[in-house]
Design a protein around this nucleic acid. Structure first.
Ligand SMILES: [Zn+2]
Ligand SMILES: [Zn+2]
Ligand SMILES: [Zn+2]
Ligand SMILES: [Zn+2]
Lengths: 166, 166
DNA sequence: TGACGTGATGTTATAATATATCATTTCTTG
DNA sequence: CAAGAAATGATATATTATAACATCACGTCA
């Protein structure tokens, strides 16, 4: 992926003409690092699923992944895909979008974070934010009601700047 | 439901021994008001589904509803349940919890709001908050990245105070 | 009243998403 | 290489959701 510094603050979503091969390369390198650090095996299947997820900045469903793999000639079954997805999710290399039943690649798997997801209904792209103000607001609200947070799902649907203006 | 004033600030989740029939009665009255105001028909099936959802403060799935209806002797099919759910959701009488594929009754259907849901993994209860600080943080973050919000999903999983302490 | 139009529900079939279970293969490590 | 652990293959099935068309119920107005 392009590194975070390549974007202005308002460009959470990647530029239309960006060099996406850099996104993919960088994501793969990061994933390898994380797997190494966790002493986890980045097998061919996991790498394949991960690469397919990184084909775009959109979220992709398990069965779309399955179809893509089968289109590549491998006769793979749902459990195989779901296992790879579980593995990648556990390691934080990808995130699941609950409201879409779909997955997309994380920009910053090395750093443990509670993310918030902006999802454009027009172009389908997903952008992850790590906004401390949102996180803090959630933590504060939880504290007020004495709720012990274990996981949060923050998904924001609408139109990205590109789609809202063009 | 017990009115909001019955709870201290930290009691977003209802008290264990509360008189739940009051919750149900109040919810039904509110639902009728909303349907009236919207000139929508609160049919028997919709009322039944709504009542079943309000059987508890937990979220319930479409097929659990279906089973409950069938247990009551009616031979109803999935589309019927999903239609009732869609109707109730549209009117804001219930909310869908994306991360559970389940539904639960809204406390305050009369007032248009973006809610946040606390979900206890232990007791299964769901509590809805309408926290302006969370909403504002989301709106502000969206503004910063020039994202036009159309819907938000904020689901917070963990342990409620009761379950964390007992 | 009763024919009509609309909205709600019934009915059948199937699509889409996800997991349980056991068999086999691959990897690691001694 | 042998043995155990981890990953994947394979089969079956569970769970969640919708498409499509038929019928029924209800309000309206001729
Ligand atoms: Zn890219
Ligand atoms: Zn867009
Ligand atoms: Zn109650
Ligand atoms: Zn609880």
């Amino acid at each position: 992926m392009a590194s975070r510094e390549d974007f202005a603050m308002t460009d959470l979503f990647p530029q239309k003409g960006h060099d996406h091969s850099r996104c993919v390369d960088s994501a793969l390198r990061e994933a390898e690092k994380v797997c190494d650090a966790e002493n986890a095996r980045f097998t061919d299947m996991r790498r394949l699923v991960f690469s397919l997820i990184w084909k775009s900045h959109k979220a992709i469903t398990a069965y779309e992944l399955l179809d893509a793999i089968q289109a590549g000639g491998q006769r793979v079954q749902p459990p195989t895909v779901y296992r790879a997805l579980e593995f990648l999710t556990q390691l934080g290399l990808i995130h699941r979008i609950e409201s879409l039943n779909a997955y997309f690649g994380c920009d910053m798997p090395h750093h443990h974070h509670l993310g918030q997801y902006f999802i454009c209904r027009q172009c389908g792209r997903v952008a992850e934010a790590v906004d401390e103000e949102m996180s803090n607001a959630v933590r504060k609200a939880a504290r007020q009601v004495q709720f012990r947070i274990e996981a949060t799902t923050i998904e924001i649907k609408g139109l990205c700047h590109d789609c809202a203006t063009h």
